[in-house]
Simulated assay, not measured.
Amino acid sequence: MSSPHSPLDLTLDGGALTARLVDFPSVSGDEQALADAVESALRAHPHLAVDRYGNNVVARTDLGRAQRVLLAGHLDTVPIADNLPSRVEGDLLYGCGTSDMKSGVAVQLRLAATLTEPNHDLTYVFYDCEEIEASRNGLGHLARERPDWLKADFAVLMEPSSAVVEGGCQGTLRAQIRLTGTRAHSARSWLGDNAIHHAAEVLGRLASYRAQRVEIDGLEYREGLNAVRIDGGVAGNVIPDECVVTVNFRYAPNRSMEDAEAHVREVFDGFEVTVTDHAPGALPGLARPAAQAFLAATGGQARAKFGWTDVARFSALGVPAVNYGPGDPNLAHKRDEHCSLSAIAECEERLRAWLG
């Protein structure tokens, strides 16, 4: 593994630089050494103005271009699972963070070092704590404390997308449906009222629920409302007096947070509903000229992003954003996580052609 004091060589090709980043452990909350290395490597390039807030590093060009494009990627990974150091097998690079998302960060660093005369002004954001609770997310800290650093006309979040543009992201809402009854001895069940049995109607509504498919900018988002947890029961001889069904609503980004919550409450009308977690979606913004140019440069194909990502933070700031990175999202967080070396090269080549 790389020493925390080892410098990053941004002249390495994308695959080799990804391997260096992967061998630089940076589990969420322990990104300082990597942030130090990224900052030092970027400060060696005079065409970039480099700032830092905590373990978040931002580098920018200031060439007076008509538009600014922002590329963002997180430095942290999930906990290491006996998958370091990295290793190469044919076209595949294995190791913690290869797909999510040090391959994308490597592409960012390569572009930051070599694009000295881009056709847009560029901002490169490297942030911490994406893989853990939202309150610690470095991009969220920047949005609150240094929003001027994130100003742009268009943003690309280098999240794994198999080198295909994934537009926007879904919103996500979690809520608890609380059902009550009367506790009693199970031998005299007629004296009680079984709260778990009352969950049948909640589950019935979920089973009959017909999720919408919503088209936005030519992308189809599929909504979903599902039970993800049921809690209830006291003992093997007790009629339970409480049961809680937790549901998760994944919704298209054309819904507001208020509309999403109202929809869930409508579905479960008559029950006690408590929203426990909620993050809005992000519109794809593919009709914007910058997005159209980006699509053309990256193969002309796009699909909806199923899941929530930090593009929602850019959307909240009024910056249209897409997900685009070389990693495979289906491999993220896996013990055998890996990334295609050719996908890293392809992703860099396409971005370079678009920006250069």
Score class of each variant (00 low, 15 high):
97 G>P: 09
224 G>L: 12
7 P>C: 04
228 V>D: 04
189 S>A: 15
176 Q>V: 00
128 D>F: 00
63 L>H: 15
254 N>T: 12
241 D>F: 01
209 Y>V: 01
102 K>C: 11
83 N>S: 07
70 L>S: 11
276 T>F: 08
249 F>C: 00
91 D>Q: 13
115 L>G: 02
228 V>I: 15
114 T>Q: 14
255 R>T: 00
80 I>V: 15
160 P>I: 07
180 T>N: 11
162 S>C: 13
292 Q>F: 05
74 H>L: 05
195 A>I: 04
345 A>M: 00
92 L>T: 12
202 V>F: 05
242 E>M: 08
313 R>S: 05
184 A>W: 08
1 M>T: 08
340 S>E: 01
118 P>T: 07
186 S>F: 03
279 A>D: 06
128 D>S: 15
132 I>T: 15
88 V>E: 14
300 G>L: 13
31 E>R: 07
292 Q>W: 02
313 R>Q: 13
219 L>M: 11
323 N>M: 09
186 S>L: 07
228 V>K: 04
294 F>P: 10
79 P>H: 02
156 V>E: 07
178 R>H: 08
12 L>A: 14
355 L>R: 06
253 P>C: 09
156 V>T: 05
59 A>R: 11
295 L>G: 08
51 D>S: 15
334 K>M: 13
194 N>K: 05
269 D>P: 00
338 H>L: 10
